[in-house]
Design a protein around this nucleic acid. Sequence first.
DNA 1: CTGTTAGCGCTTTCAA
DNA 2: TTGAAAGCGCTAACAG
Lengths: 340, 340
Amino acid sequence: MNDPRRRPTVKEVAARAGVSPMTVSRTLAGGVNVKPELQERVLAAVAELGYHRNENARSIRPGQPSGLIGVAITNIANPYYSTFALGVEEEAAGTGRRILLGNTSEDPQREAQLVGDFLGRRVEGLIVVPTGQSSAHLEHARLGGVPVVLASRRLKGLAVDSVVLDDESGAALGTSALLDAGHTRIAYLGNIRRIFTGERRYQGFVRAHREHGVDLDPALIPEGQQEVGEAAEAMRALLGNPDPPTAVFCANNRNAIGAVTELGRQIAEEGRSPDELPDVMSFDDFELSDLMPVPVSVIDHDPRELGRRAARLLLDRLEGDVAANPQHVELPVTLRLRTR
Amino acid sequence: MNDPRRRPTVKEVAARAGVSPMTVSRTLAGGVNVKPELQERVLAAVAELGYHRNENARSIRPGQPSGLIGVAITNIANPYYSTFALGVEEEAAGTGRRILLGNTSEDPQREAQLVGDFLGRRVEGLIVVPTGQSSAHLEHARLGGVPVVLASRRLKGLAVDSVVLDDESGAALGTSALLDAGHTRIAYLGNIRRIFTGERRYQGFVRAHREHGVDLDPALIPEGQQEVGEAAEAMRALLGNPDPPTAVFCANNRNAIGAVTELGRQIAEEGRSPDELPDVMSFDDFELSDLMPVPVSVIDHDPRELGRRAARLLLDRLEGDVAANPQHVELPVTLRLRTR
DNA sequence: CTGTTAGCGCTTTCAA
DNA sequence: TTGAAAGCGCTAACAG
């Protein structure tokens, strides 16, 4: 008769336990100042009815947090971001909070929508890997004071907490290692302009060249490949260069995997020898990177820790001083060199 | 003065627009029966105030759905599950719903907690990759009628919608291919008993052997490795067998990657030739699988589609007949053979 | 220690 | 076409 989807309420639990709703509420809140005997009755009623406190109703009362953290990342299917999300989830779960997850697919408009939606659901805070350079939708005023932490990428002109990698130094480190090994024609695969990390990593790449007195060849710097397939294509084009690169710097795992895939194909299908193919330097480790047909050196870091730190910055903000100066964390990267 | 964290409400928007809260509500609900001029004023006030309708408050009214889907998976960092989550998210986002994501880490207790928490947040439905064999926390009664879809794994005795892979046939197909190629000593790496897919895939492995009249050697069937490192160790032990396997069947991508990692290590560090090392058959594709030092055949499928289908089953349930018979979808797998 | 009252932000119902 | 009243489930504040 009655809708099976109707969920029991405090009142029903109270009625069944023969107490008032407040006693139920208090019991569920920890049971301070409730006679143990009543607590037992309440708990029994809760169990019998399969009652779950309505957190949404609860959170509309002033001062009651929703226990929700909004996380907007560009692509969950990218192992880098999924591991990042794991770190966030772990840290949030540790405080009883849950994460509301959304994918932006590198679409700034979708990101803005997502943020708006998250705000509507009264998230306590936001963790965003921002897409595009506009920060309008993340301004303090627009957020109504909800704290936001930027992860992996910062946004110019937006003074909020952030956790990023030491992209520039890492890229310079990796590039220097290639230059030190005698390479003078190093290709660059990655997103250069559009994306924060791309720009920074590219700057590191450039700086290392400058410091080594090696000129850049624009022909070795294709732009904008984002997906594995695009990167593979770009790699193929590079190999067709009359004076091909002897090493390739990949600014992220998508580009590295694309590059390596193409190199593997050249070996398998075109009968080329690994010896005539470029070394690979990858910003981001990836699974099986040490089993590749050409040596893959890695500028390594810990995306899970990145997620944890982002979450911790946010949680600190939630529990502490909302107005304190923004914190900017830069996590270190380490170079893992592989040679022939 | 006033707490910057205080978010504007309908009342404030109404006051600013010089209308009643109801006019604001109606405007935000689509604006039926609201004079365009008033709508404009309302929308202007919304923009000026940075108002976001409180979805939590909204959802406590009877009949108002929360727009939330609870997703409990075992490990977001596993590319298989993160891609699955992407599929779910896409499909959910298409209907304006968001996903509440939780990691169970293969811990049944954590899963039960998570489900309870999700219910408290009034999710409209649940998508669960169940851990363990207990289904008590997912019984209809315990869920208060909230629909659940099981993904990847089913639970004995729990008659709810499910999407799984055709594990048994897939495993048999892959195993048969190895047997057809002349292998008679095939090792098995995976979780056999504890997990639904493990059991099914193992059954397929066994059936193929039976059909080919080849006996199983228990010594080639270590048990229970879940992580890459454990799988690598198990692979190493197998290679130490006086009569080592000539092929290894890996029941999931974690085990395949572990196995391949160890094989690569044997080649690089122990100077062994790929020719004396076993072929690999992997249930689950993984990135770069075609670049491995030994041929890796793949029993392939689409985790993103699995996620989409799970979400669609759930959405159908939400929009349609809650009480209809459970649907059981089995997605096909395909064999991609690689030989020397 | 327990209960009553009131109100959080929103929208359904009813009246104007 | 608009608004006032009432109530969703919950809990702080105040009695008792």
